[in-house]
Design a protein around this nucleic acid. Structure first.
Lengths: 137, 137
DNA sequence: CTGTGTGCAAACACTTTGCAGGTGT
DNA sequence: ACACCTGCAAAGTGTTTGCACACAG
């Protein structure tokens, strides 16, 4: 999927910052932090611009934001269009990677009377496949 | 349950800040932020001391920390002793209250091979019982 | 051309750290 | 008495805002 095409479809101006973020996030096999994304881009981008771009891209549901423990913020592609259920996120306590468990639908919790359930966030913490492998040194 | 007794049981020094926090958190029917807790106490407490007290109380599993969207941090009593399952948290989009759904056990998600699941955080966002009632003005 | 996006500086909020002095046990 | 806790100042971090300029459409 081409970043430019995505921007066009959302009637967003095609700027190198937005293009860059979308390109990097789509290519990654895990969620990335602002720093990780910036490091993978060549040009020098202002952090302010980054934050504003993230906000725009999140609003347009091009990417989504994942927050771990008030500390770590990462971004991943948003495929709420193709997947019509909410998905769980996994955080590795060892390598601190975050991945979307796109195939793990989240349970729909039943709440007490009068409560509405608009959105459910599920974060599973543990050790990822790579980190749990016995070290081969 | 008496704050002093709780501190004693954990071999923690009995200080007015710790006593105060425990007292307020136990009495509340919802999770409270640092500010909310401080406002409910009489004396003047330093924020630094508050943060350090929270850390201590969390480490001793007297209270637990709930983070909403990287923005809002609240604390609630920790009853992992009496409840031996993880519970979900509810966040009201209207009044921003946070409550522990102590009776809603979280599903144990099955992960791909090689992944371990140590801990699962569930945050349900919606409208709480009070806010969803038709306004009677 | 016009509205939107960018880059810079500064402000902000929350949290942590270092240190000296005070306090609980 | 002594370890631990507190309060203050200062630094750190992540994020937002205001403003002038640049640029995409």
């Amino acid at each position: 999927m081409d970043p430019v095409e995505i921007l066009n479809r959302h009637n967003l101006k095609r700027t190198s910052c937005r293009e860059g973020i979308i390109g990097v996030v789509l290519k990654a096999n895990q969620a990335l932090s602002e720093n990780e994304i910036r490091n993978r881009l060549t040009g020098n981008y202002d952090r302010t611009t980054f934050y504003r771009s993230f906000k725009t891209l999140v609003q347009h549901k091009i990417i989504h934001k994942i927050v771990i423990d008030n500390q770590l913020v990462k971004y991943a592609p948003d495929n709420s269009i193709t997947h019509n259920f909410e998905h769980a996120h996994f955080y590795c306590n060892e390598c601190h990677s975050v991945v979307c468990m796109d195939d793990i639908p989240v349970q729909k919790y039943v709440l007490p009377n009068g409560y509405s359930n608009d959105e459910t966030e599920v974060l599973i913490k543990g050790t990822c496949g790579i980190c749990s492998k016995p070290e081969i040194k």
